[in-house]
């Protein structure tokens, strides 16, 4: 995993219009990457985003105008066919990016209930790619949130797409599904609450997604086609 080389983005992310960095205690963490709520847990081991998991992907996220993104570059230990990144890991990366987007939006842990990935072209070992996730505006009052993600290569060509559904669950209600100490839960609850406060309204009242759904993948000039 390597750090992203893109510029820091500071566009509004929450429904309040506050950048996520401000939501999380002024913590655009290191070099413009977002600090997720999980960072208050000293030794969290998330395979996708923990900096403490030596076997994990160590993803870091940046704000985008319509969501968040992560830049990744996987090595041969993550391949399936020689030189090709294992497709399942693309699912992990999409899930991780979409899931953290929801956590940052609504201030609650979100459990994946379904996900589908379309693999459009191989992702090569050593190549830099970016996963961009956004929330699909849904029906008012729904307790589920639909999201979509694109994995693009350095030229901006979409190589995989994902769509998933998540169920946000209040941390207290989620305690029976995750293993966490009372002390850690307290710290996590405070930072999640700060995130929720910044978005201003209960989940059921929030229009998820800041923009109308485009219904299109990014347009790719024919010259960039593989």
């Amino acid at each position: 995993m390597t750090a992203s080389t893109e510029d820091t983005r500071t566009a509004p992310a929450g429904t309040s219009g506050k950048p996520l960095a401000d939501v999380l205690g002024g913590a655009a963490a290191d070099d413009g990457h977002l600090r997720t709520p999980w960072t208050v847990l000293e030794d969290y081991q998330c395979f996708g985003c923990s900096p403490h998991n030596a076997h994990g992907l160590r993803l870091r996220f940046r704000e985008r105008p319509d969501g968040i993104s992560t830049t990744f570059q996987l090595g041969p230990t993550h391949e399936s066919y020689p030189g090709v990144v294992h497709g399942g890991l693309l699912g992990v990366i999409c899930d991780e990016t979409m899931g953290n987007l929801i956590v940052l939006r609504v201030g609650q842990p979100a459990f994946t209930t379904a996900m589908r990935v379309r693999f459009l072209a191989p992702v090569l070992v050593g190549a830099v790619h970016e996963c961009r996730a956004r929330i699909i505006p849904g029906a008012d009052g729904s307790t589920l949130i639909n999201t979509e993600a694109d994995v693009v290569d350095a030229a901006g060509t979409v190589v995989a797409t994902a769509r998933a559904t998540y169920r946000p669950v209040a941390l207290e209600a989620a305690r029976d599904r995750i293993q966490i100490s009372d002390d850690a839960a307290g710290r996590l609850a405070r930072v999640l609450a700060a995130t929720a406060d910044a978005t201003g309204r209960p989940l059921a009242d929030q229009p998820v997604g800041d923009e109308p759904r485009g219904g299109q993948l990014p347009n790719v000039p024919a010259s960039e086609e593989s």
Binding site: R118, V158, T161, R163, G215, Q216
Partner: peptide, 13 residues
């Protein structure tokens, strides 16, 4: 690959 891209766009649309 292009056909799959078309399908992905159509599904999203």
């Amino acid at each position: 690959v292009k056909v799959l891209r078309m399908i992905a766009r159509i599904e999203r649309a």
